[in-house]
Nucleic acid binder design. Structure first.
Lengths: 316, 316
DNA sequence: CTTAAATCATACCATGATGTTATGAAAATA
DNA sequence: TATTTTCATAACATCATGGTATGATTTAAG
């Protein structure tokens, strides 16, 4: 006995609306149409679905059972319709994002959190990687977006790049650090403290060397090398070490006061934090929406940095 | 976005079988058919359902979500098909049965129990009533079957009657009763004990008078009048009262030893316990099956009564 | 009990979805 | 590169499904 889901749905509509006519209206069809469908069904099944000669039709027990399944079907198709609408509107789906650990943990993950408050049905898969790795994964299609500091002339072929923020680094230390209170610093004041370095394969490592040499420090003691922001911050908090961090990362931590910046102007690298994606690839709605969100968040972030930077942190 | 449940089902079939061709086979269709349906769906929805240019097709995230609903739909239609098969085979549905309380409780309910062991999806609705009431309800269609002792010439118009068992009554008492051990009884031995009578509107009440007068007792003391078998049996057990019960009822209790019959041959009424139903009404499969079951059970019962009656109970 | 209203069934026609076969294109595989 | 696998397209057939008009039957009202 092969049954069409639509027919079960139809039975449910008839019962729930109390008649062929009402059911037809609910289904957006004409009364004769559903009448004929019911007749056909009864013939096919070989059993009555509605009691004979009752004018507002009265469903058989079998019909009630079938209608119950019909309601399940109606429910399922409705959620299907809903999810396609969500999906097409970029309100459902998933995005796979990868980037450098420090930025992902320090800036992006917070934005992901607020993004998901607005779009709870979009799932974000976050992984870590540096430029070469990101490029490979973008080409292979295992990630949708990369977030990474890149020199404009280093953007790999076949990838598009959208700058989000200039790559500015700052000297950072724990808020409890002896230097944190001073309004100006000399080289000799900085010199005694040990340094925390990012992993050697990170672009930040190079930054650290360049930054320090730009202020005249060529020889420094590395007391800790860590791959993740969390490890750097916790070592920072428990020691008097200094490190170099992207200003945006330090800025994002401003409310929880785990790290602060020192009033030393470093030479900033000629890279820009930005988004990477495969050039010829049209993004799914959810990914496009996420990208837009990130871009707008960085827009806002850079404005805040400008405002705040003038009076409090960007001091010399 | 209006979606056809069949299409969701189709997506599920494609994914679960790993390709358009396999899916088509599983659905009993041709490959081009499902291919075109998928294309149409993608156009309608306005989003890809399978990644472009992958030769064993690979479903999109959206497609996976839709397929999940498709599986729900497939499940629902399958159970619908199953229930119609059960229903048509009389293995699902319900039957509304009414009858005289003593027979229903003493004989029929036990048969219902064993029936439902074989056909657990058939629900039986049991109510009580005497002939006039049963007739009314059968005509009105509020019950499907009646079970009642009826004189063949009293069968109401528009009803059919199928005899199950001759209406034989016996004197009954508790197994602990002083008379229960005796192999023969005289009128004077019976006379001292009080009597339990069925309710006055029951046909059994008339039987009681007739039966007792047939053995010469015209004046008797009624100590209890009860409507249900359970109440009669419990009073019987706690007293030295006697009563008149249908032999089949006493017989059905033979294993639990709550009641026994006395070796007195009563004049039996010219009625037959039998099934009643509306003549022109075609029964639903489940009802027909239940009726058949009851008939065969009574067949067996009357054979057992015959065998056992000869040597143990039908003594004079 | 008759009449009116409500509700469903049937007849007829139109069309769109769905199916089939034949065949071509593209990806995967050897 | 050649071959196989897998999917897409074209052309056609047909059946399910939809609509309108209208008749029949039950229910409700007078």
């Amino acid at each position: 006995m092969k049954i069409n889901p639509n027919h079960l749905n139809l039975l449910a509509a008839i019962i729930d609306n109390g008649g062929l006519g009402e059911g037809a209206v609910a289904l957006g069809k004409s009364q004769p149409s559903v009448s004929r469908t019911v007749s056909m069904l009864e013939a096919r099944i070989g059993a009555r679905l509605f009691e004979k000669g009752r004018k507002p039709v009265r469903p058989t027990e079998l019909c009630q059972s079938l209608a119950a399944q019909g309601r399940i079907i109606a429910q399922a198709t409705q959620t299907a319709e809903q999810t396609t609408d969500l999906y097409k509107g970029g309100r459902a789906g998933s995005a796979r994002v990868a980037g450098t650990p420090i930025f992902m943990d320090g800036v992006i993950s917070g934005m992901i959190a607020s993004f998901q408050r607005s779009f709870p049905d979009v799932s974000i898969h976050q992984t870590y990687g540096y430029l070469a790795d990101l490029r490979e994964q973008l080409i292979a299609g295992t990630i949708d977006l990369g977030i990474c500091p890149v020199r404009q002339d280093q953007v790999p072929d076949a990838l598009s790049f959208k700058p989000l923020l200039p790559g500015r680094n700052v000297l950072a230390c724990a808020p409890s650090h002896p230097l944190a209170r001073k309004s100006a610093l000399t080289l000799s004041e900085i010199a005694p403290y040990p340094w925390i370095a990012p992993p050697a394969d990170s672009p930040l490592y190079e930054d650290l060397r360049d930054a320090l040499s730009s202020i005249g420090i060529s020889d420094f003691r590395v007391s800790f090398t860590g791959g993740s922001l969390a490890s750097i911050l916790s070592v920072l908090a428990g020691s008097q070490a200094l490190t170099v961090l992207p200003y945006s990362v330090v800025f994002m931590q401003r409310h929880i006061r785990t790290v602060t910046s020192l009033p030393v102007r470093l030479e900033h690298p000629d890279r820009q934090l930005g988004l990477l994606w495969q050039s010829d690839r049209k993004h799914l709605p959810a990914i496009a929406r996420f990208r837009k969100y990130i871009e707008s968040e960085f827009d806002e972030l850079s404005q805040q940095i400008n405002v705040r930077g003038r009076d409090s942190i960007w001091r010399r």
